[in-house]
Design a protein around this nucleic acid. Structure first.
Lengths: 146, 146
DNA sequence: TCGCTACAGTTATACTATATAACTAATTTG
DNA sequence: CAAATTAGTTATATAGTATAACTGTAGCGA
């Protein structure tokens, strides 16, 4: 049997990076379980959301807004396009540019996606101790991310 | 030139997972820059720290304490052993077990490591707005990580 | 004691995320 | 117009993480 061990975590106990990382993994874990059926990853979620609220943006603009390298963004859009959620439309005025839009199916998908997400987010808020605690957390982590 | 674009981030603006992720990346970025010379990754840091404060733990115990799978932990210890920072000692009473210790060089390294880490952590605390803000953040993220 | 089971560490492997360089096609600029 | 720049793409490399299977060792019950 495993010994009953008490571990001294030293500065890890309240190291910002370490605790932030563990928390983020827990939140993404819950996110992943929430969207397991849809096979939707956090990046996919954010991309659909940005396109829904900013139709017609260029690929590179969406990528940059989310901090995703444009090279890595290609496969993400490929995946969403293959699922008929997102559409690339070549710009008339600049034929290098791919403007991004949700398809009708994508719009519908986004609605359900947001419902699922809301349930996930509500669990996180409950864990935190309510909306005020959530607001306080967001305020604090935003300072870290500049 | 890139158009001047205002992006609607919708619920991403205060989504716990998204903001937590961005903040964690920023913190790890600073950590990485702090330890670029030593080539020390966050995982290495935490392993050295745990061994320093809990000498003689089994590999699997250190791995579990840090949420690292034992299979992936092997390469981490290999690396630290190759740098003569950590020593595997076969247990006398159970020859399957590798007990972990810092070498004398490892002890010395840990001291310098903690000095570097402290500077990094102080930057994070300053960004947050002081030690109280840090404490509040730790309190909140700990709730998310259970 | 023998044989089964469990365990520690390891190896191999795969998948995801991320980063960089180089390429194509189109556009802009000197 | 030629050169430089830009958008998107492809190829590739690395890091992190996850699982299965293997080796050697220990413990346990018949």
């Amino acid at each position: 049997m495993g010994r009953r061990i008490i571990i001294n975590y030293s500065v890890l106990s309240d190291a910002v990076g370490y605790r932030l990382r563990r928390a983020q993994l827990a939140v993404f874990q819950d996110f992943g379980e929430s969207f397991a059926a849809e096979g939707l990853r956090p990046a996919d979620f954010s991309v659909v959301l940005i396109i829904k609220h900013n139709p017609g943006l260029k690929q590179s603009e969406v990528a940059e807004a989310l901090g995703i390298q444009r090279a890595n963004f290609v496969a993400i859009v490929d995946g969403l396009e293959a699922r008929d959620l997102v559409e690339r439309r070549k710009s008339e005025t600049d034929r290098r540019v791919q403007a991004l839009f949700l398809t009708p199916l994508g719009e519908q998908f986004a609605e359900n996606m947001l419902t699922t997400w809301k349930a996930h987010e509500d669990r996180m808020i409950e864990k935190l101790g309510g909306p005020e605690a959530r607001d306080e957390l967001i305020r604090l982590v935003n300072r870290l991310a500049e």
